[in-house]
Nucleic acid binder design. Structure first.
Length: 861
RNA sequence: GCCGGGAUGGCGGAACUGGUAGACGCACCGGACUCAAAAUCCGGCGGUGGCGACACCGUGAGGGUUCGAUUCCCUCUCCCGGCACCA
């Protein structure tokens, strides 16, 4: 073996072995338990970033660990290849999105390979290829048949200068990102998927997802947002009744106005004869479309001059148009109770509307409505015959009243909205529909699938290039054969990522979306990806899987048995803020940090000019903050193993990870120490006999216990807790102990051999290249990747004595050695005998004795 | 604004089920080796007081429960993720 650790020599060698032996190529095998380990596939943006490296290293560690535990493990990889950045790159460089995307994939695939990931590359899936997206189209048509897909209008951001629809990301402060035009909301026809039909199922099934983090399940439950309330019709003179939904029917007597969306028919009608209203409605249509903007903007409104009739009192209730009511959500109208809803209270204060208390606290205490709304449940007052009822009684009584009248009903409502999948973009999966002047919207027949996307177009930022391409547009109506026009909208890219995990199992089937191989592999046993996908991607995938289940395509209802949400990768932000002009960000690699004598930070300067820069703290690695670190440079300099080791050691996987050049150096140093440890052992010519545990000295027994305790800890930390950082820390501790262990007697050598073999096996999932070589260096002829995961020897773990902590009144005052099987009485005696303990008891009588076996004794005086 | 999460030495983090706060690594300081430097190795390293044994303080802030709280509860501050057309 080489004396010096040289990853450039070791790593290609190990990878060659895995490739030549097809180590990670797997097929279905009923004789072994299967383990489907899946990482979220990357968007081919150009180069791998640190988040990818972190994600795929976690997946690879779990893949290799489970392989060694005897599972039949599938780890596939693919490309989420449709999307907006390809169109942006196309516009910037005049290259077709397809070429840009395929070039990126080729480069990033080389990068992934250099990380030494145990991937079955035969199964690679690329979502922009027709053999993949034809099944998007095929399933969409099935959904259309079932009524799960439907068409209606929806609101989009419209750039009036570019004459194009903008993504939320492309709207900056209400203006289009390219020309700076004021963006308008516009209603256009779109296709929707009825995810709301699955709301109840998607909510209930969360309880069964035991392998999911609680916080993700909570976020999904809140997103679905089930509520129970009443749907009530308010009569409006000379118009259709105004229908609203409320979860607080108990506050009905406190309604002092109604609020409708700008697009509501009542608002439109009232505006016809009122220029001020027209201006206000036009202004509402210019305001932002995102929920965050809607909720934080100034709440404004204007009266329509129309009244609704209060259904219980018969009093007139003024109807207002308000900028915070959304037409696309619920009925586009709400009832407002300023006394018991904070937003209504603020609106009423602003416009001098009535604030009328109808609920009081159960204890009859007074409520201060001058400082804000009182939103708790309580007892009804000022509510006619409902006075004195509590929330539940009032809900019930009022529901019965409306049900008897036929003007209202109980209703379960969801915050979740149907999924709009139409995108007015080129680089996406074409929606397989044909518009015929005679037959209307006609689905493309299955035998004409896929509707292929031309790959040589270059978008110019003004609408979809498909709409300008006759060869794509022109077609025959499948129903009447007459001339027709193809749909030019493409699908949301979340469609592509909602089922790719099925396709990895049936990757080469040209005749069906999925086959029986998917039934073998699904569900995914462990899914790993960024926390930023906790809601949308994961919810859409759960929905899509249920639709496939209901169409008989799979027996699986939930796609991901276990979920690990990895944290973001952060780095320092350095900047200068000139007196005038924009903030300039400097890459941390170009900044020197000045320290005081204790190593605490004094300041930072730009190396180039020696002048100070300001620190902006830690932030996600991004282009805009210029704080990214290229993983390729890291791999080129230190090798993949050091990159993997640092990523796994620096933080537990669910937490954000702070980048540190020094930390990488530390990981590399450990690799060198490990290498040297093995080298020293194997280059000693003294024989290594078989280990005889019974004959070990007490120092040898002590070390062997540490070896097996470490093994037990690593097994638990990787397999159960997924805290790779603590597993690695334990191995570092053990290797420090081994470096101090200089026993060259035959049994000392034998113990060293056992310890080094266990270390190499235990680290092989994390640093597989180096361990491949070290295993052979230790005299083993097998490949470490094919070895079984070792088990800790219970005999080695046994202890004769224990050290217990002794507290007086909960404060640490001493330690005692006791036999491992000591009785409580013996422990009490030993604890009381400790001189320091006696000092703190100061002769006071023992009031209570708390004994936690194996841990501590607490003497309360 | 709403939903979810986080805050522990100079820094990243550890403490798994309420039981020894600071494992492991980094930075820093001291020493060995060297003509010297780098690399490597050895030692120290939360704060305050003390020659020392040791004591007191200390887990974002304030309060509570408990024999005992980084861990549980309440209030607050700041930071991060998501908010439906970025992926």
């Amino acid at each position: 073996m080489q004396e010096r650790y040289d990853p450039a020599l070791v790593e290609p060698d190990a990878r060659r072995y895995w490739d030549e032996n097809g180590t990670f190529e797997v097929r279905e095998d009923a004789s072994r338990p299967k383990y489907y380990c899946l990482c979220m596939f990357p968007y081919p943006s150009g180069r791998l970033h640190m988040g990818h490296v972190r994600n795929y290293t976690i997946g690879d560690v779990l893949t290799r660990f489970h392989r060694m535990q005897g599972y039949n493990v599938l780890q596939p990889m693919g490309w989420d290849a449709f999307g907006l950045p390809a169109e942006n790159a196309a516009m910037a460089h005049g290259v077709p999105p397809a070429k840009w995307t395929y070039d990126n994939i080729a480069y990033m695939k080389r990068q992934l390979r250099s990380l030494g990931l145990g991937i079955d590359w035969r199964r690679e899936v690329t979502t922009c290829r027709p053999e993949y997206y034809r099944w998007n189209q095929w399933l969409f048509l099935r959904m259309l048949e079932k009524g799960i897909a439907y068409r209606r209008t929806g609101s989009v951001n419209w750039d009036p200068v570019d004459q194009t629809v903008l993504a939320n990301e492309q709207v900056i402060d209400g203006r289009g990102w390219r020309m700076g035009a004021l963006v308008e909301k516009r209603e256009i026809p779109m296709y929707y998927l009825r995810i709301t039909d699955y709301a109840q199922e998607l909510l209930q099934a969360l309880d069964g997802l035991e392998g999911w983090p609680e916080r993700v399940k909570l976020m999904q439950a809140n997103w679905i947002g089930r509520s129970e309330g009443l749907e009530i019709d308010f009569q409006v003179e000379g118009a259709e009744p105004l229908r609203i939904y409320t979860t607080r029917p108990d506050t009905l007597y406190g309604v002092s106005y109604m609020a409708v969306a700008a697009e509501h028919p009542l608002a439109r009608r009232a505006a016809a004869a009122n220029p001020d209203l027209q201006a206000f409605i036009a202004e509402c249509q210019r305001s932002g479309a995102t929920e965050a903007e809607l909720e934080t903007m100034e709440k404004r409104g204007m009266p329509l001059g129309i009244d609704a009739v209060h259904p219980l009192t018969g009093e007139p209730i003024p109807i207002w148009v308000a900028n915070f009511v959304l037409m696309g959500y619920g009925t586009g109208a709400v009832m407002a109770v300023p006394a018991h809803d904070q937003r209504d209270w603020e609106f009423a204060r602003r416009y001098g509307l009535r604030i009328h208390q109808v609920i009081e606290p159960m204890d009859g205490s007074l409520v201060d409505l001058d400082s804000g709304a009182w939103v708790e449940h309580g007892r009804l007052v000022n509510s006619g015959r409902f006075d004195g009822l509590d929330f539940d009684e009032a809900f019930d009584a009022i529901a019965k009243f409306f049900e008897a009248q036929g003007t209202g009903r109980r209703r379960v409502n969801y915050r979740l909205r149907d999924w709009a999948i139409s995108r007015q973009r080129y680089w996406g999966c074409p929606i397989p529909l044909i518009h015929c002047p005679d037959c209307g919207d006609v689905p493309v027949p299955d035998e004409q699938l896929p509707v292929e996307l031309p790959e040589d177009l270059v978008p110019d930022g003004s609408g979809s290039p498909l709409a300008k391409l006759d060869s794509f547009l022109a077609c025959d109506c499948p129903r009447c054969g007459g001339p027709a026009r193809r749909e030019t909208d493409t699908m949301d890219t979340f469609v592509d990522s909602s089922w790719y995990f099925f396709r990895y199992a049936s990757f080469d089937n040209g005749n069906a979306m999925v086959d029986e191989r998917a039934e073998y592999w699904m569900p995914v046993d462990q899914y790993i990806g960024g926390i930023e996908h906790a809601i949308l991607h994961l919810l859409y995938s759960r929905f899509w899987t249920r639709v496939m289940h209901d169409l008989g395509l799979t027996g699986v209802q939930e796609p991901f048995a276990k979920l690990l949400t990895q944290g973001m990768v952060l780095n320092e932000i350095f900047f200068r803020k000139p007196e005038s002009g924009r903030i300039v960000y400097y890459n941390p690699a170009d900044v020197d940090v000045e320290l005081d004598a204790k190593g605490a930070r004094l300041g930072a300067v730009l190396r180039e000019d020696g002048q100070p820069v300001e620190s902006g703290g830690m932030g996600t690695m991004s282009k805009s903050k210029n704080n990214g670190v290229d993983p390729q440079a890291l791999v080129d300099r230190y090798g993949a193993d050091t990159a993997r080791l640092f990523m796994m050691f620096a933080a537990p996987p669910e937490q954000s990870l702070e980048w540190s050049d020094e930390g990488v150096e530390g990981a590399f140093r450990f690799m060198k120490r490990l290498w040297r440890l093995v080298h020293q052992h194997v280059s000693d010519p003294a024989a290594v006999p078989a280990l005889d545990p019974a004959s070990l000295s007490s120092a040898q027994r002590e070390l062997r216990r540490q070896v097996h305790e470490t093994l037990a800890k690593v097994t638990n930390d990787i397999g159960r807790r997924h805290t790779f950082n603590t597993a690695i820390a334990a191995v570092m501790e053990l290797s420090n102990a081994l470096a101090r262990f200089e026993d060259r007697a035959p049994q000392g050598r034998a113990l060293m051999q056992e310890a080094l073999e266990i270390i190499v096996l235990a680290l092989s999932p994390v640093v597989p290249h180096a361990c491949h070589t070290l295993w052979r260096a230790l005299g083993r002829t097998s490949a470490v990747v094919d070895e079984r995961w070792p088990e800790a020897d219970p005999a080695a773990l046994e202890r004769e004595t224990l050290e217990l902590v002794v507290q007086v009144n909960g404060k640490l005052r001493g330690r005692v050695q006791v036999p491992a099987d000591a009785s409580e009485a013996l422990v009490r005696e030993a604890a009381l005998a400790d001189p320091n303990v006696q000092r703190f008891m100061a002769g006071k009588p023992l009031r209570k004795f708390v004994y936690v076996p194996g841990r501590l004794a607490n003497l309360v005086v």
